[in-house]
Amino acid sequence: MLGNDIVDLNLAKIQSNWRRKNYLDKIFTIGEQLLITSANNPDEMVWLLWSMKESAYKIHNRKTGIRDFAPKSLSCTIHTNSYGAVNINDSIYFTKSNLQTAFIHTIAAPVYGKLEKIKVAIYELPDHPDDYKSTKPGSVSHHGQYLALVY
């Protein structure tokens, strides 16, 4: 099983005000909040952590059949070179992120070795393929200008 999540940073800027009172506390663990407040680019850190959580949740949700909104119970660890891990209860998911100025894209897999085997396709409007479902992607993510597929 695979997960992926893309954040259109230009849309995120207008769609979400993470500086709103209590916002970070609802989503991020104390450790993650420290990463954000101490980051050189806090906006990038917020959406990096968010895309890690979302991509891992997409696998966990399919694995357990449980649908909920508990972002704080997904705990992120960031390693070097945009690799990371997300712990959800007793499960761990490995992530790799692609940080660009216009978007952040994260892929997730339940096994670390799988990350390098994942094929990624990112499309920007108006170039979204209509028939992408027929290509049977392992995970689909849409946000703003972007469509991200992984195989």
């Binding site: 995120a12 979400s16 709103r20």
Partner: peptide, 14 residues
């Protein structure tokens, strides 16, 4: 609704 906005709904409800 974008999942990041679900947090806004929770805060608005509070």
């Amino acid at each position: 609704i974008n999942s990041a906005n679900l947090v806004d709904i929770v805060l608005d409800v509070e």
